[in-house]
Design a protein around this nucleic acid. Structure first.
Ligand code: ZN
Ligand code: ZN
Ligand code: ZN
Ligand code: ZN
Lengths: 133, 133
DNA sequence: AAAAACTATCAAGTTACTATAAGGTCAATA
DNA sequence: TATTGACCTTATAGTAACTTGATAGTTTTT
């Protein structure tokens, strides 16, 4: 199949698919005499795998690592657990950080009321305060 | 003062300060005959303001908007409230999205146990599943 | 005088695409 | 047959906000 059909099957943009190929995440497809790429079901599977990983916001580096591990089927899968756990930790840390941010922003909002002029804006004043560390 | 001193006062890297100048976020400092930038207390204040905004993860575009508003002190500050509220909404949406992600990743982790070989890894199997939409 | 510290500019790398440009190929239609 | 339109190709640049590196000129210290 050509690239147009695999975009439909995989839900990925043609440019993105070529990009993954360039990044070494996708087995190189065969080429026709005219230069067109020819994909197989294997490519569909590979792209589905990548897409599922991306929806979990795994980085392309992480995905590359997973793909490499798949080629060593008899090693321990502990590395995979470690990778996913590391990713979970990143996500949790980011949630915590954003929750702190949300509190700060909400508190900032409470510094101002409607109908003020900009020179009296409590939000701007608060952003200008010297206090910190 | 030179750039080295203002890095200490502002907590920002010299390159970052030059970058902000290039981005039009910072009043252009005077130059000495040798080309060295000369900063004043005004620049320290401007950089502190930018830094505080960045710690709240406001974008440089948002900061540019805030700086522009400051030059119109008699307009209503409603736009500022809108900007910050919009930012809060972004943060909240991202938190929600990451919490969903965390659940999915935790559920993924439960698909595998220690001591398996990669070909039997439940995580990899799960990432390969066709089910979706 | 030589070395260390400071400053300058410019270019490239980071992430994972996305968009644009310019052009070759193919099938169907007028 | 000519041409339209859909499809494919490569290459380049842009996104966000820096960060790193290269190269070079200036000032201060030893
Ligand atoms: Zn990760
Ligand atoms: Zn206000
Ligand atoms: Zn924002
Ligand atoms: Zn496993």
């Amino acid at each position: 199949m050509h690239i147009g059909e695999i975009t439909k099957l995989s839900g990925l943009d043609a440019q993105t698919i070529r990009f993954y190929e360039y990044q070494g995440l996708l087995t190189m497809p065969a080429r026709q005499a005219n230069g067109y790429r020819t994909y197989t079901d294997i490519h569909v599977e590979q792209l589905s795998f990548i897409r599922r990983c991306r929806m979990l916001e795994l980085s392309l580096t992480d995905i590359r690592a997973l793909l490499k591990l798949k080629s060593a089927p008899h090693e321990s899968c502990e590395v995979i657990n470690t990778l996913i756990n590391g990713h979970i930790a990143e996500v949790q840390a980011r949630i915590t950080s954003l929750q702190t941010l949300e509190k700060q922003l909400t508190s900032l909002m409470s510094c101002c009321a409607d109908g003020r002029e900009i020179e009296d804006c409590g939000i701007l004043a608060s952003l200008h305060e010297k206090s910190e560390h």
